[in-house]
């Protein structure tokens, strides 16, 4: 018994040391990186700004600007009938015009594992859309560096811009069109795209987004550009509605 009493302090020390060891050896979560790459097409062709004429209902069309906000971007996996989401980012600005039609966003430190798809929205969600550029740092996608995409009269950000020219026929005046969408009513809501994605440590994978601008114009019936050349005010919603309705079916993800 006396020997056991001598040993007692050592048992305590051993216990304390082992507790510390347990904390120290907790495994780090396994994480990896993921690229999201965005490209715009016009039908089967890469979108080319200004210099390429595309056929649009028998007329020549060129595109001078195409951009949009993408928001609430998350990977998801289906677990027991429920969707578990891993957020990638809250919002970013995809500007094809200034980036030679290819934008890549790097997402870091994502949990490894298998995912069943990606969910996102086109536009600015209402909680952010109720704010103004001055509420954000100047370099934030919603800040002063992107002041051209806020419209005070709408109390809204401009969610997307598509601009270009249509040459109706020889001898007719060309039509300059500009489709700006915005306000909470034109937020796309969640767009889900399923894919099979296995994120592994040490391997940076890429999800490719392809946006078909031709489909945005044509799906559901060709947008009458000559009749509706602009949608930059809330009193001209025909074209904006057409554009916003067609975003979900014009984006493919692989």
């Amino acid at each position: 018994m006396k020997k056991l009493l001598y040993l007692f302090p050592f048992y305590c020390l051993l216990l304390a040391t082992s507790c510390g060891d347990d904390t120290a050896v907790l495994p780090e979560p396994e994480v990896t990186d993921l690229n999201l790459t965005f490209r715009a097409n016009f039908g089967d062709a890469d979108l080319d700004f200004n210099t390429t004429s595309y056929d649009y209902e028998g007329m020549e069309m060129s595109i001078s600007k195409f951009d949009f906000f993408i928001s609430n971007v998350a990977l998801y996996k289906n677990v027991d009938g429920n969707q578990e989401q891993t957020e990638l980012f809250e919002i970013d600005f995809i500007d094809f015009t200034q980036n030679n039609n290819e934008v890549t966003i790097l997402n870091q430190d994502l949990p490894v594992g298998e995912y069943d798809g990606i969910v996102f929205s086109i536009g600015v969600p209402s909680d952010l859309n109720s704010q103004i550029p001055g509420d954000f740092s100047s370099t934030h996608p919603l800040g002063f560096s992107n002041l051209s995409h806020y419209w005070a009269d709408w109390n809204s950000y401009i969610f997307s811009k598509i601009e270009g020219r249509l040459m109706p026929a020889p001898g007719q005046d060309e039509v300059f069109f500009s489709y700006h969408t915005g306000s909470d009513d034109f937020f796309s809501g969640a767009i889900e795209k399923s894919l099979s994605l296995n994120l592994e440590v040490g391997v940076t994978k890429t999800i490719n987004f392809e946006i078909d601008l031709q489909n945005i114009f044509l799906s559901g019936g060709a947008l009458d550009i000559q009749t509706y050349p602009h949608s930059h005010s809330l009193s001209e919603t025909t074209a904006a509605t057409h554009v916003v309705n067609n975003y979900p079916n014009s984006i493919t993800v692989n």
């Binding site: 001055g134 002063f144 051209s148 419209w151």
Partner: peptide, 21 residues
Amino acid sequence: FFDAPGDLPDAECGHCHNAPL
């Protein structure tokens, strides 16, 4: 200037000269 809805014509100024800058 800011193309507010109403009977007045849109002058389209604010698209390139947007507030507050």
